[in-house]
Design a protein around this nucleic acid. Structure first.
Lengths: 208, 208, 208, 208
DNA sequence: GATGAATGAGTCTTCATTCAT
DNA sequence: AATGAATGAAGACTCATTCAT
């Protein structure tokens, strides 16, 4: 009856759709980060994009759904660790050098350090929604896995004692870095000092 | 109608007031911790206490005010570090022993580990309120000061290299402990594993 | 702790509550009837009562809940059939006389004839809500039961052939009366003509 | 881009147009019936047809317009009463036989018994739109006229007392049949029982 | 000190409808 | 003839807060 109808989704539309989608996701990311998840209204997200709330609900089921799209978006953009090791002559570097160098990778992109705050806030507010806990857990797993790979590599290359459990170390590193970032945000600490304390502490956590 | 009210002696009055106050503060503390600050309604706080929202607004100017009362309440109940060192024969203990022993003091009371989450959420939602940032900063200072005293004491007693800046170390410790606690909550990690990682990491942060 | 607190619900409050409740229920009833269920906004209901939408949501969980409260309210106010037979000297009356006399009881009170319309509209819009169908069925049962009692009484008193199934007759009567009322509303028929056709038809349905 | 569009011969064009029109009208009819007018979204109508909302607004000015198209569609498809009497040897039949036989014609086609519900719902929601009342009245007139013709024919053929007003009788019949149908839908009554009660009652209404 | 009915501003969300393609 | 992204007005509902008692 309506056989060939849906077949030609003109790429023009697809492009349009993707453009508005990305604009909204990115706006949401920044607004969430600036004001917190709860305090960000859909109107706030939409405001600077040139779209309206209708467009928002065209792309997302609701505000919470939008949050998860942001999470995925960030995930997708996170530069892999593989790229990190390539083109790195580690023979001349101290552990501290490497950690400092890796920091840009350890902390989230786009300078949204302490984004965990947003995540935890969303988590709090949807604690009893079914499946949320698992979703967060799975997300964490991914991070730990990536971080574990980094630690393992450090062990392989002789920077870290190979007898230590890389997974636990990964968790400790992540928590420490993020913990400091969050403290920095909440307590208005000097950014440079925080960065320094992160590197210093990370090195110690990695050392015996 | 209000006949028997006059009969209550002033002291009983005050006692009554304090009783309801504490009941509400404590209920708020637990609700905030369980559901997050934003998701906790005044009704939720009031619910299990036997009081009504009217009582709430007798004691607190508003929800945010209540939050700060909780913070103060927690502050007041935090056992001082002085008590910690008394009756502790540290001569026989390793650094790890001490840290493990101190953990109950390092982490917030009543098993509300990761309460920073609540604080940061409240912070996010009142970012532009004037004075909030300072208030948080001052609060943090208090913690750092206490923690710094602890670290200094460790240096005095020879557990920690005296040349390190105790304040930075304090900040690192706090962030690390809280960071792990938060991760544990958000990502549903095993409580025992978290505790273990906390002690282990803390020792490393304190070591050279 | 809060032992005797809830014990004295000052009747003043109860009265206040009941007053606002009834005002809202009645307003809802009339608005629903005038504009239909879907087209009636909560604001419309609240408008003439002197209350605000907040009061509405104090009394009702939501608009649909309010609808059911209206249904119950109508149910409660429906004069029983017992009162009908008392003080009625049926010996001198024809069947038509009785039916005409009963019409005020057969049709809903307050001149809201054809209120079934509202019910069916609400029904349509909540068809997939669980429990709605049963609730309506139970409601209908009650009506049929009452109507059946009326028919049985007519049989006892010799007005209607006792061999006919009173329950089926009751259903036919109800449907006929309501069906005509609805047609009258939707097709703007003359009220008097409708009333006449109702009595005439009802008598025929009751006759052999 | 629009290259092959010109190649379609005008007749094919028209056929295409009619196909999509009918698909949409029929879908609307069924959706309205299943979920009610208000609860049916344009998307719902469009869903199973293979078209999109754009097509909908090509054929109909708006949702209400679509409703009237459905009404017309149903009107057009209603088998005339002329066809009914042809090829019916009524000499051997009782009144009940005829009514039963006519029921398929009395009740709406396609098993959408109780479609009056939808009509009345639409009516409620457009009560103050000018012209709606008249339009409904005219519609009803048509039905009554058809039904009146049927009744008159019954009188001619001796089944019904010729002294009774055929128009009133027609209205009573229609209301009764539809009233029962509606009750059946809203109160989940057994379809067979309803049908039986319809025939039985109709015969009584037609009898003296 | 405490009650609880009532307020009303604030938000999310829906959906009929438009329009460039 | 039809698409589907986007609009934006409308409405339901929440909840911190007030106030007469």
């Amino acid at each position: 009856m309506a056989s060939e109808k849906r077949e030609i989704p003109p790429t023009a539309w697809q492009a349009k759709r993707e453009a508005s989608y990305e604009a909204l996701v990115r706006s949401a990311m920044f607004r969430f980060y600036e004001k917190g998840y709860a305090a960000t209204r859909v109107e706030d997200i939409v405001a600077g994009t040139g779209y309206t709330s209708g467009a928002f609900y065209f792309h997302f089921k609701n505000k919470s759904d939008c949050f998860w799209h942001v999470v995925d978006y960030r995930q997708r953009r996170r530069r892999g660790w593989n790229a990190f090791w390539e083109g790195l002559d580690s023979s001349q570097m101290s552990l501290e050098d490497i950690v400092r160098y890796a920091q840009a990778g350890l902390t989230p992109d786009e300078g949204l350090s302490g984004w965990t705050l947003v995540m935890s806030e969303h988590f709090q507010q949807h604690r009893d929604d079914p499946g949320v806990a698992e979703r967060f857990a799975r997300l964490c797993e991914g991070w730990i896995r990536a971080q574990t790979a980094f630690v393992s590599e450090l062990q392989h290359r002789g920077w870290v004692n190979p007898s230590r459990d890389p997974e636990i170390l990964a968790m400790q590193l992540l928590s420490f870095i993020e913990g400091l970032a969050v403290h920095g945000v909440v307590f208005s600490l000097d950014a440079e000092a925080v960065r320094h304390a992160q590197v210093d502490g990370a090195v110690r956590l990695l050392s015996d």
